[in-house]
Design a protein around this nucleic acid. Structure first.
Lengths: 193, 193
DNA sequence: CTCGATTGTCTAGCGGCGCTAGAATCGGAT
DNA sequence: ATCCGATTCTAGCGCCGCTAGACAATCGAG
């Protein structure tokens, strides 16, 4: 009865291959270059095979986004736990966030710029990895929200600021030159230490 | 000799029509709905006419973006000049910015999310309206940067925060519910009053 | 062991996209 | 009235996301 099992494993493996290949192609060239034809060619299957795993291109982007969210959450927790003292922790958290966006631009786009068909904001059906990445931010930032300020709300604001810095920098709207100073200013001003 | 003049005017008029129609269609439906075919049909010319005014779709988006930048700059200046006191001015500025993004989502996308082929960051060839919108922010925000903080850098950070709030809210990533409180918190914490 | 049914994969094609070459038409100057 | 240059259009290229239907491989029942 292990025949079915083997098939299932092979199928799951192929799904991982699709997601990994899409991500790779997006990082190498851009999401525009990730067409169903090229993706199919790279995994050495025909186009329709993609549609037996995902409803369409959106869902593939969504899968990359979820993978990215899990990695981001882990990176944030590592950064926060490595630093000593509140101030350093918040700084490390912010840097880790911006580093992630800078080093994985395509994944970051999949998460926050493209339509990956992922639900949000409605508490219930937001995918777990995304909630967890937010939770990772909140664990540290909740400590510096200040008296009488809701930790969740404070985290949302801090996150939005990071997101703005990340996207505007990457789009060439903000010179990379003083990126460091902007982060420092953000941490100093927003966090109550 | 006014024949040439009339033709030039008609041509300029048609160009305005193209930009206005693209903007309208984008706001009504979405930028995805703005295809060269549909756009051509709405202005009652054939597709290639669009290419006698713009290099391609990107440039049309860029034209909408520039129009939007000029409007945003004006809205920001009006807001700042209407309020009394530094604190109120900064608050009004922030609200005006977010209102603009909320009320003109397609235009905002043209400016900051889509590729309109506009240069940035390199001081020299950034289009005038964009520099001016940034200048409008700086005029007010420069007053509250705080001692020893470069006004331009402070403005960049404040702008990035607003941009983050605008995009994440519009994408449904942040609940609209406490939007007001987030802005208040941003103003209170970032600005040195 | 055979043979129909089920499952999996592929070929081929649909409608729509941005963009362009070359035909057709128009309008002012001679 | 006729020509010629500018303007506009028709038609079509190569690509996109997606899917119907043909075909092959695999499995379970007789």
């Amino acid at each position: 009865m292990s025949v079915q099992g083997r098939k299932q494993r092979e199928r799951a493996e192929r799904e991982r291959l699709i997601v990994a290949t899409a991500r790779e192609l997006a990082e190498q060239q851009s999401w525009d270059a990730v067409t169903t034809r090229r993706l199919a060619e790279r995994i050495e299957y025909s186009q329709p095979v993609l549609y037996s795993h995902f409803r369409g291109k959106r869902e593939i982007i969504g899968a990359v986004a979820l993978e990215g969210a899990a990695e981001l959450a882990a990176a944030l927790r590592t950064a926060a736990s490595t630093a000593d003292g509140l101030r350093a922790q918040v700084g490390a958290l912010a840097h880790a966030y911006l580093d992630f966006a800078e080093r994985n631009p395509a994944v970051y786009d999949a998460m926050f710029q493209l339509d990956g068909g992922l639900a949000f904001a409605r508490e219930d059906d937001t995918p777990e990895p995304l909630k967890d990445a937010f939770a990772a931010l909140r664990e540290t930032l909740g400590e510096v929200a200040g008296d009488g300020v809701h930790p969740g709300l404070f985290t949302e604001l801090f996150w939005a600021s990071l997101h703005g810095l990340a996207t505007l920098t990457r789009a060439g709207r903000l010179p990379r030159e003083h990126a460091e100073q902007r982060v420092e200013l953000l941490v100093t001003r927003l966090a109550v230490l």
